[in-house]
Design a protein around this nucleic acid. Structure first.
Lengths: 340, 340
DNA sequence: TTGTAGGCGTTATCAT
DNA sequence: ATGATAACGCCTACAA
């Protein structure tokens, strides 16, 4: 039973005091080489691992990071969060952190959950997803000085915390340029109703790329809630007018799939979901693993981990009062398939 | 700062000793009504929450459950695990447990991770997914008496632990009967190469239903690795023979989508993924939220939680040596859409 | 450089 | 029924 190996066991085994063992772990440079080697050998041999609960009582740090998991909403978007979550888990582990999941119905509910998670489990930090206009969560966390970063910019709010995001506008712009290069001149945009931060951003990329190419956008944008049926409807709408488009940039894969169904448009979707892969839809793919890694890196910074220190031992420093905010904007990549 | 409220604070506030507060929390029946009420009021007023790290040092229990998260393999299956994970997180919380994520490349790697998670974080239990033939993980856990349950039966191995699963054969049987009722007589099965436990199971349901209806199955089964392209190829293969089928039951949505593409077969897929929903594929849907809830229930049993006790206080009993094994087999549901 | 002495917040044991 | 005391494993002074 390896769990019974404590720091005292190691100390006895290496003929040193418990304190020396602790030093080897937390301040290796303060102990003599020969001694350190002996202690390390004992640790190895005994398969010792520091008990985090005990450590936490002293340090107040749990090495646990909270992330929300959402229900598979439209059923289609899920793969995005899924990949992000996997990336987070994978990069957090070598940094000495583990990911704890929670669910929440809305912002208020999520804040209550923070409170609970903080009080009971003493989570070290949170990664927030799905940032939106009037996001109340960030203020709550900031006020309490809880370390956190968001996957998503602080839309429409002052820029007061670290964040990581993917440049949606750059994605739709790239898609638009790709279609222009393929010879299209009339290119529509099918997106969500104005007012969703992410949706507005994606639309702006199309608009900018069109304007940069000297192409008109009047009457070429249509908006509806997400969905395949809606996508098809919007597509027929733009097609059913004088001088119809020959291509469409879409804010999501479902919308794109609907448009693609008409077989009358070249189409590019967004998020490169399983659906796009399955039916051969061109789509814009977010670098989610990278985004996750950046989130972990940001948190490590916030938590005062020394990057040069070995993962597991990295404990020392108290969390600095206000490290520079970290802002990372990643560029998505267009995946070209049959649809355009 | 609510985290500073300790059991001592409450004790002072209620004019009792710390121990009495602890009793109110862990053995409510041992304390006088009047006292309990006073303590509860203090707890409420102060917003006290037990510190789990400290509790863990005494009890050895972390109220943390480990679950593996996989990379989005084929990119299509992800939604299944995603929904399961969400269900787990959601039902674990009211039971007083939180879900911790980890990744692992293979069984050996996963076992090493158990070791780590157990030693460092003292996880209380694990939920294993993706059980398979020659699964080495369960033996390791059993040997160490680590509480766990699997989502998936112990395929081809002695039945020595609790598990929850969905009856795949029942699903394909239902799909087959549905197609028969719709008038089909020649019904193919498109699945994965023999040797995958889940795949073999799904095939058996089709076979049984066909035989029960007195219909032949000779030459109507085809196997290939998962994928849309493969599905289409298999479909053409069965169609390209004398007396071809008019319908196909498939082991997965990608295979079904490929078959559906030929427009020559009625088709039913498996897992009701986002793809099926998007393109209107009939598919068999696993009750993943229920499965997750059953897993949590099983673990609660294994961990000796008293179901009648309020969630958060439920701590008392030591884990009993060998509670009855829990086996739950859930029935999936056929979702009928355009494809058959 | 190494050892000794608390104490983090809980719960279990044992008195009262 | 309630209260004092010890102990879980670790880390951080401080002393040697």
């Amino acid at each position: 039973m390896p769990s019974k190996v404590t720091i005292a066991t190691v100390a006895r085994h290496a003929n040193v005091s418990r304190q020396t063992v602790s030093n080897v772990l937390n301040s290796p440079d303060v102990v003599r080489d020969e001694t350190r080697a002996r202690v390390m050998a004992a640790i190895e041999e005994l398969g010792y691992r520091a008990n985090l609960a005990a450590r936490q009582m002293r340090t107040g740090r749990s090495r646990l990071i909270g992330v929300r998991i959402d229900p598979a909403r439209n059923g289609i978007e899920s793969s995005v969060l899924d990949r992000f979550l996997h990336g987070l888990t994978e990069t957090a582990a070598p940094a000495g952190y583990r990911v704890v999941l929670y669910t929440a119905a809305d912002d208020d509910n999520e804040i209550a959950t923070y409170d609970d998670l903080l009080a009971a489990y003493t989570l070290d930090a949170f990664v927030l997803t799905h940032t939106h206009y009037d996001d109340t969560r960030t203020a709550w966390l900031r006020q309490r000085q809880i370390p956190f970063t968001t996957f998503g910019r602080p839309w429409g709010a002052p820029d007061l915390h670290s964040w990581v995001d993917v440049d949606g506008a750059a994605g739709t712009a790239a898609a638009t340029r790709h279609l222009i290069a393929a010879g299209h001149r009339r290119i529509a945009f099918l997106g969500w109703p104005p007012g969703s931060a992410v949706g507005d951003d994606r639309r702006s990329g199309w608009q900018a790329a069109m304007q940069a190419a000297g192409l008109p956008t009047d009457g070429l944008a249509r908006h509806a809630p997400d969905g395949v049926g809606e996508g098809e409807r919007l597509a027929r709408e733009v097609l059913d007018q004088p001088d119809p488009p020959t291509a469409a940039v879409c804010a999501s894969d479902p919308l794109a799939l609907g448009a693609w169904r008409t077989r009358a448009l070249a189409v590019v979707g967004f998020d490169d979901t399983a659906v796009a892969q399955a039916v051969g839809l061109s789509s814009i793919r977010q670098p989610l693993a990278e985004a996750a890694a950046e989130c972990v890196g940001t948190l490590a910074l916030l938590l005062g981990d020394n990057p040069t220190t070995a993962p597991r031992q990295a404990t020392a420093g108290g969390r600095s009062t206000d490290p520079d905010m970290h802002h990372v904007l990643l560029t998505p990549r267009l995946v070209v398939r049959d649809s355009g």
